[in-house]
Amino acid sequence: MSLADEITRYVVSEYLPGTSPEELDPSYDLIDTGVVDSLRLLQLIAWLGERYRIPIDDMDISPENFQSVAAMTAFVTTAQDHAALS
């Protein structure tokens, strides 16, 4: 399963009961549509950090990194590249 698929599945199963993963476009804005509020943002950050071993505490993160599945995928990819280099 691709990174984007995995994140999609998590978002759908946690926050969009009744929606199938195929329905969720990777660019769908999760913040403007209220799917992810500030509480869930914390939960998402924690999940991504743990699942993909990203040292969240050492990173500069902003809500834009979590605006959509595509944004989160890019964030995780960048963070992993970083980790691989250092």
Binding site: L16, P17, T19, E23, L24, Y28, D32, T33, G34
Partner: peptide, 23 residues
């Protein structure tokens, strides 16, 4: 779809008023 309804609401409502779940 429920996602389409969310988008509809997001254009017309303040964010906390967008329902958390659409059945």
């Amino acid at each position: 779809s429920s996602l389409a309804l969310r988008t509809h609401c997001a254009a017309r409502l303040t964010r906390v008023a967008i329902p958390d779940a659409f059945r």
